[in-house]
Write a protein that binds this DNA or RNA. Structure first.
Length: 263
DNA sequence: ATGGCCTTGGTACAAGGA
């Protein structure tokens, strides 16, 4: 079973690009972030024509998330939109139970973590509050669904090796001690960073700034993550960042991350 | 380098992203 996450930075712009990637990457579930579409604008018909069913949760201009599974697969079940109990006007989370043909049901949480803008800002305070609510909710979800995957754009670089220039980024947004402590708190729930379960090339990033020729110079951050629960840990066979779509014309600034679970 | 780019809304340029 393959599961993937991708911040597409506008599904309206990126739909052809997404369909091309899906055609050559037959995953069992894909979560999207930054769709930037209200629910009435979500391109479910175009996705269905390409063989994909979806559940989605969006808003105008900003944020927006979705979960795609093959049309032949069972429909995503027990769908949750945003974090229960958190009063949030921003569309950042979609969760569902996914059943592929050859694996037991798996709880998939797709999340677009707040950016946070800058330490000390109102947006940073919102990020902290959101992270606290996420932690509480994921803890409860794990009790209900031992087979659980939390994936998405975390907007957190967990360690200095996830940052192209740790000195320049020290204490900056995505790299503060507070954000990193929240990442560790999620791991402490019994989640595992699938990418770090394997030896990886140094300077592996999932996001590169559009500016400064950052992709060409491989100056980026690893901020898109796939965390798997203890029950799934032994089945993780591979985890990769697919840089190829970042080379495209008009790419997203993020690359997809893909995890392979053995049956 | 104080920044460079991309997207949205809307039709000029501001806001947000990371």
């Amino acid at each position: 079973m393959k599961l993937a996450t991708w911040n597409v930075n506008s599904l309206g712009v990126r739909l052809p690009h997404l369909l091309a990637w899906l055609a050559s990457h037959p995953v069992d579930a894909l979560v999207l972030q930054e769709t930037k579409l209200t629910d009435d604008k979500f391109p479910h018909a175009e996705l269905a024509a390409a063989g994909w069913q979806a559940v989605w949760f969006g808003q105008k201009t900003y944020n927006g998330v979705a979960l795609l599974v093959p049309a032949a697969q069972a429909a995503p079940a027990e769908v949750v939109r945003n974090i229960p109990g958190l009063d949030d006007e921003q569309a950042r989370v979609i969760a569902a139970t996914v059943s592929s043909a050859n694996a037991p049901a798996t709880r998939v949480i797709g999340a677009y973590f707040p950016n946070g803008q800058a330490p000390g800002s109102d947006k940073f305070a919102y990020k902290m509050k959101w992270l606290e609510a996420l932690h509480r909710w994921v803890q409860a979800e794990l009790q209900l669904h031992p087979r659980l995957v939390l994936m998405g754009d975390f907007n957190i670089a967990p360690e200095d090796r996830d940052v192209h220039d740790p000195v320049a980024w020290a204490g900056q947004i995505h790299c503060t001690d507070e954000e990193r402590a929240h990442f560790q708190a999620l791991l402490a729930l019994g989640l595992h960073d699938a990418f770090r379960m394997f030896e990886q090339a140094p300077k592996s990033w999932s996001w590169w700034d559009y500016r400064n020729l950052a992709f060409r110079k491989n100056q980026g951050l690893r901020i898109d993550h796939i965390l798997v629960s203890q029950a799934l840990r032994a089945q993780v066979a591979a985890c990769i960042i697919d840089k190829e779509p970042r080379r495209a014309e008009r790419p997203s600034d993020h690359a997809p991350v893909v995890v392979t679970l053995s049956d």
